[in-house]
Deep mutational scan, measured.
Amino acid sequence: MDVFMKGLSKAKEGVVAAAEKTKQGVAEAAGKTKEGVLYVGSKTKEGVVHGVATVAEKTKEQVTNVGGAVVTGVTAVAQKTVEGAGSIAAATGFVKKDQLGKNEEGAPQEGILEDMPVDPDNEAYEMPSEEGYQDYEPEA
């Protein structure tokens, strides 16, 4: 019985440690998101679009440190934060509304985080759909 109880105690310690790591990862992701939003706020009209992409990228980098179902929630929060940063930029006159959601080359930025393969159960990952990809044929 002692062996059984000791095993359960060790398992509990492992769960607590994993929860603490997840909590730490979420806190880091939130900190990076805040950094990115402050970065966007300090940019001029020309830099705002690039700044919004930076927020998304920093958040995406930190999301990889967070495991399990938390990833889905962090990704949703990050996307809403990026959308909010863009709205703030438009409201303050840093950028025109028609410039939001495009990178410096004018290509749409939507789907940055949505296409990231995420499995809350950590069982399997699927690649994003290939609808947006084109076949590449090298020139002879």
Rank of each mutant, 00 (worst) to 15 (best):
E105S: 11
V16M: 13
Y136Q: 05
L8E: 00
V82N: 02
G36W: 09
E35C: 04
V37P: 00
K6V: 14
G25D: 03
S129F: 04
K10M: 15
K43P: 00
L113G: 06
E35K: 08
D121V: 01
D119E: 06
E110R: 08
E126N: 08
L100Q: 03
G132S: 05
A89Q: 04
K34S: 08
V49Q: 10
Q62Y: 12
Y39Q: 04
H50D: 05
Y136G: 01
G73E: 07
V118D: 09
E126I: 02
K23E: 00
T92K: 09
A76Y: 13
E83L: 14
Y39C: 02
K43Y: 12
A78E: 04
V52S: 02
F94A: 05
Y39M: 08
E13Y: 05
P138A: 05
Q109L: 12
V70M: 13
K34C: 10
V71P: 02
V49K: 07
D115A: 11
D135C: 05
V37W: 10
Y136C: 12
T92D: 03
P128N: 07
N65T: 11
E130G: 11
I112S: 13
D2W: 12
A91W: 14
E137Q: 03
K80F: 14
A91Q: 11
S87C: 04
E114A: 12
T81V: 11
P108Q: 13
A90D: 04
E13G: 05
E57I: 09
K60T: 10
N103V: 11
D121E: 09
G93F: 15
Q99R: 02
P108L: 13
V74H: 01
K10E: 02
K6T: 10
Q134A: 12
G14W: 15
K60S: 12
E46L: 15
A124I: 13
V16T: 11
G73I: 12
N65I: 05
A56F: 14
K96A: 07
E83G: 05
E139K: 03
G14I: 06
P128F: 04
F94E: 02
G111Q: 13
E35A: 11
N103G: 06
L113Y: 15
P128G: 02
G47W: 15
V71N: 04
F4T: 01
N103P: 04
K43A: 08
K43Q: 03
Q99A: 11
M127Q: 11
E110P: 10
K21C: 03
K21W: 14
G93T: 04
T44V: 05
E61R: 07
V118T: 06
K6W: 15
A11H: 00
A56N: 01
M5K: 14
E123R: 04
V63K: 02
A89S: 05
A140Q: 03
S129Q: 10
I88P: 03
D2H: 01
L113S: 07
E83Y: 08
S9T: 14
G36A: 13
V71I: 07
T33R: 11
M5I: 15
T59A: 14
V3Y: 15
I112E: 03
T22W: 11
M1R: 15
D135S: 02
G51F: 15
D121W: 02
T72A: 05
A76S: 09
V16Y: 15
D98F: 07
E110V: 11
E61F: 10
E131N: 10
V40D: 00
G132R: 03
A91V: 10
K96L: 10
A29R: 06
A85Y: 13
K97Q: 04
E46Y: 09
G132T: 11
V3E: 12
F4I: 03
G106S: 06
G14E: 11
E28Q: 13
A29Y: 11
L8K: 00
Y136M: 09
N65W: 14
G7A: 15
K34N: 01
A30Y: 04
A19Q: 01
G101T: 08
T54C: 12
V16H: 03
F94N: 03
Q109F: 11
V95Q: 04
E35G: 06
A69D: 05
K21M: 14
A124D: 07
M5A: 04
L113P: 13
A11W: 09
E28F: 13
G31F: 12
M1I: 15
N65D: 06
E57C: 08
D119G: 13
G47K: 14
E137K: 11
V66N: 01
E57Y: 04
G36T: 04
E126P: 07
I88R: 04
T92A: 08
E139M: 13
K80T: 08
V3C: 04
T44L: 15
S9V: 11
V3D: 09
I112A: 02
Q109T: 12
A56C: 13
G84A: 15
V63Y: 03
E20K: 11
G31S: 05
V15L: 15
A53Y: 01
P138Q: 08
A140H: 13
G51C: 12
G7F: 14
E57L: 05
A17K: 11
K23I: 15
Q24M: 02
G106C: 06
S129K: 02
A53I: 08
V74Y: 10
Q134E: 14
E83V: 13
A29K: 03
E110F: 11
N122C: 07
Q109K: 05
V37C: 09
V3N: 12
E46V: 09
G47Y: 14
E83H: 03
D2E: 15
G51R: 10
T64Y: 14
P138L: 02
A78V: 12
V66K: 02
V3I: 13
V37Y: 13
T59D: 00
S9C: 11
V71M: 04
E46R: 08
G68L: 10
E57W: 12
A140K: 09
V3G: 15
K96R: 04
Y39H: 08
M5P: 15
G101W: 10
H50S: 06
A78L: 11
G67Y: 09
A107G: 09
G68R: 15
M127V: 13
A29S: 01
G36S: 06
V66Q: 02
G86V: 06
A89N: 03
T59V: 14
N103H: 07
K97W: 04
K102E: 05
D135T: 04
G73R: 05
V82P: 02
F4D: 00
Y39I: 03
A124N: 14
E28A: 06
L100V: 11
G41T: 04
E105P: 07
I112N: 07
N122S: 11
A27S: 07
A89D: 05
V15N: 00
E139L: 02
V82M: 08
L38D: 01
S42G: 04
L38G: 05
E104T: 07
V16R: 05
D115W: 07
G68H: 05
E13V: 14
K34E: 00
A27Q: 12
F94M: 14
G51W: 06
E20G: 12
K10G: 01
A17T: 06
Y39K: 07
G132M: 08
G132F: 08
D119V: 02
T81C: 10
L38F: 03
M116H: 07
A17C: 08
A27G: 07
E139I: 09
D135Y: 04
P117Y: 05
P128I: 07
E104M: 04
S42I: 10
Y133F: 12
A91R: 13
G14D: 01
A29I: 15
E28T: 11
V48C: 03
G93M: 11
Y133N: 11
A124G: 14
K102C: 15
A11Q: 00
A78C: 13
E131K: 04
I88G: 01
G47L: 12
A89K: 09
T81S: 08
Q134H: 11
G101V: 07
Y125K: 08
Y39S: 09
E105G: 11
G7E: 14
K43M: 06
E131T: 09
E61D: 07
K80N: 04
G67V: 12
S129C: 06
K80L: 11
V40K: 00
Y133T: 09
Q79W: 13
K34R: 01
T72M: 09
I112H: 03
Q24V: 11
V71W: 06
T92R: 09
T44E: 00
K60R: 10
G47V: 14
E105A: 11
Q134S: 06
V70G: 01
M127C: 10
A27T: 11
E35H: 05
V26N: 00
E57H: 07
K102D: 12
K60P: 01
V74P: 01
A17V: 03
H50V: 01
